[in-house]
């Protein structure tokens, strides 16, 4: 999963876009490279991933919390994609409840993150 996030970061860098500029007489259209502010915003995000990863390994949070963070989701968004109530998802963030979940709910979560159920249950290194 870590690699996938890095891919997403790589996709955002080096992007080119159309720009309009005026040279004193005429208007021109050109393609220009951008300063990468997105990566700076994402540093905060990747630091949070590290802390959550530690908490999952210590047994304080379930793997679901890790997948939510790496896929740029939050509880409210996930609830609107899966149609599972927010308070239920919050309960699923604890390992004890997550381990007792049935196949159907696990499949719903896995479909949103585009992974298999087995991948949902573990976190990669």
């Amino acid at each position: 999963m870590e690699a996938r996030v890095n891919d997403k970061l790589a996709e955002t860098t080096g992007e080119q876009m159309v720009q309009y500029y005026f040279d004193g007489k005429e208007w021109h259209k050109k393609w220009e490279k951008k300063f990468d502010a997105c990566a700076v915003v994402m540093t905060k995000h990747s630091q949070e991933i590290e802390t959550i990863r530690q908490q999952v390994l210590d047994g304080q949070l379930s793997p679901l919390a890790y997948h939510i963070q790496t896929n740029l989701f939050n509880v409210k968004l996930l609830s609107s994609y899966t149609k599972i109530p927010k308070r239920h998802i919050k309960k699923h963030l604890t390992p004890d409840v997550f381990n007792q979940l049935d196949e159907e709910t696990l499949k719903k979560y896995a479909a949103v993150f585009e992974i298999t159920v087995e991948e949902l249950k573990e976190i990669s290194e």
Binding site: E15, M17, V18, Q19, Y20, Y21, F22, E32, K34, F35, A37, C38, V40, V41, T43, K44
Partner: peptide, 24 residues
């Protein structure tokens, strides 16, 4: 600093980029 970076995103990247639609 993250707040400032998101300001840069709004000015340079989102939509047209390049000072938020002023050139357009």
């Amino acid at each position: 600093r993250v707040y400032l970076a998101s300001l840069i995103q709004a000015i340079e990247e989102i939509g047209t980029g390049g000072a938020g639609y002023r050139f357009m």
